[in-house]
């Protein structure tokens, strides 16, 4: 089943996109977008996984021991930081929308502005 982890990443991505498309609430939409982004963590870590290898930390094991890929793990870290900043900005925008139009339903906001 070497395809399963990639299939999981695709599934999380599609589920998140479905949530974004059908969302009737900006807060819900922001959470769905975070779910979409979570699929990239699974994808990155699945790519870097090496069967039977340890973590890329040579505290207790000698140099040269096979480890999972450290680069994708550092990239996942960047990914998570970007995810948090995007979420914070969208939530702030949602609060601002609510302050100005009194609703956080994307359809109602569209109606109000024609």
């Amino acid at each position: 089943m070497s395809i399963l982890p990639y299939a999981v990443a695709v599934w999380i991505f599609v589920v998140g996109i479905y949530g974004v498309v059908t969302s009737r609430n900006l807060i819900h939409l922001a959470v769905c977008l975070t779910v979409v982004q979570s699929s990239t963590y699974v994808l990155l870590l699945a790519i870097g996984y090496v069967r039977g290898a340890g973590p890329p930390i040579f505290d207790a094991v000698p140099v040269g021991t096979r480890t999972v890929d450290p680069v994708v793990q550092a990239l996942s870290l960047t990914d998570i930081v970007v995810s948090v900043t995007v979420l914070a900005l969208i939530l702030a925008l949602a609060l601002d929308v609510h302050r100005h139009s009194g609703t956080i339903d994307p359809d109602e906001i569209a109606e109000m502005h024609g």
Partner: peptide
């Protein structure tokens, strides 16, 4: 082009693993 799960042989990770401690 994705590697088979559990068989990643990317060049950078291996290089970094070799360089970090020495």
């Amino acid at each position: 082009g994705l590697p088979h799960f559990g068989h990643y042989r990317g060049p950078y990770g291996v290089v970094l693993d070799r360089l970090a401690v020495p």
